[in-house]
Computed example of a mutant assay.
Amino acid sequence: MNDITPVDADEYTVPVAGGGLAVTRWGDGPGAPVLAVHGITANGHSFARVAAALAVRGGPALHAPDLRGRGVSGGLPGPYGLAVHVDDLLAVLDHLGVERTVLVGHSMGAFVSCLAAVRHPDRIAGLLLVDGGHGLPIPPGTDIDTVLGPAMTRLRMTFASPDDYRAFWRRHPAFAGRWNTWADDHVMRDLTGEAPGLRSSCDETAVRVDGAQVLADEETLGAVHRLPVPARLLWAARGLGDEAPGLYTPERLAGLPASVSALELPDDNHYTPLFSSTAVLVAEQIHTLVQETVQVQGQL
């Protein structure tokens, strides 16, 4: 599973409300850099393998922030919420001097990406959504603990050493038999504090606020139905615990707008498309979307 050579990463900080947003850049290909938006308890390094695959294709650089309340941006204060993430993404584009580009979002990051496109169609040229962005049929009263129970429990746990945290993740049903150096890099970036009290960098309040909006916020859930830009959705056949079916099924995607094309990832669960060999497909989809949007903009 480690058939792609990693590319060098640079780290920089973007001034945002309350402090500095940590961003990782991979690659230096031509064109506007792609902005990658991670999931609710993840960090920007979840896109390292996608960035390496994109570089192999000669694609543009990929920039991935650690969203507010996660990773190296874990200490950024509230208010939280998806609209604040959108503002932070725009700050990154402004910092880079990028007028308009493609976003790729995984899980919650897909919802953030849709909201960014609706609110700022002049800045977002296209979207690649990975197992997220389209609302799910959630029973009334469902909260984030019900949906993300194991992940929420992890945020309150402490670990004696990095190896203990690594072992915790290797036992996770989504990663059992699928562990590799890409997943390891992402997990180690999440770890903060000092032994024996190491813990996840994710701020629980941020996760709760963001998660509530993904589950029930009208503007967030409606964004995918009002997209003013080209969009593609890659959906995993298996769920957060490697169970079948996953978050999406053909029936659940029946309400997806015809303007959003959908492609099943039959060998992946919710977590793995960015870490498995499917990352090559994700990179191909990004590269194709970039080329299509460049052509469209050239015709305007």
Rank of each mutant, 00 (worst) to 15 (best):
L274K: 05
R208M: 12
M157F: 00
W235E: 05
L289K: 13
A83Y: 00
L256Q: 09
D210E: 14
R49D: 03
E292H: 12
D163G: 12
H270T: 10
H287V: 04
T5E: 15
T192S: 11
T24M: 06
R232F: 02
P245K: 14
G75T: 13
A51Q: 12
V229Q: 07
R57Y: 00
W169D: 11
Y248A: 01
A236C: 13
A231D: 08
P30K: 13
V214P: 00
A52W: 05
L281S: 06
E219W: 02
R171T: 13
F159E: 13
A236M: 03
G27L: 08
N269E: 04
Y271M: 14
L21C: 02
H186M: 12
D88L: 03
D190W: 00
R208P: 00
L21Q: 07
G132P: 05
D184W: 04
E194C: 02
L155D: 10
G97F: 06
R226D: 14
N43F: 02
P140E: 15
G58P: 04
Q285A: 08
L89N: 05
G197W: 08
F47Y: 14
A9T: 15
G222V: 07
I138Q: 02
G149W: 05
P139K: 10
V118P: 06
D122M: 03
H120W: 10
T288F: 02
T146G: 01
V84S: 08
D88K: 07
R199Q: 14
L89R: 03
H270N: 10
V224M: 11
T181A: 15
A176G: 02
R49I: 05
A212C: 02
V102H: 10
N43Y: 01
L289V: 13
S46K: 02
G197Y: 11
G177S: 06
P196T: 11
G27W: 07
E218A: 15
R156N: 12
G211N: 11
D10A: 13
V187H: 06
N269C: 13
D8E: 15
L35C: 05
L191Q: 13
V34F: 07
A17S: 14
L191N: 09
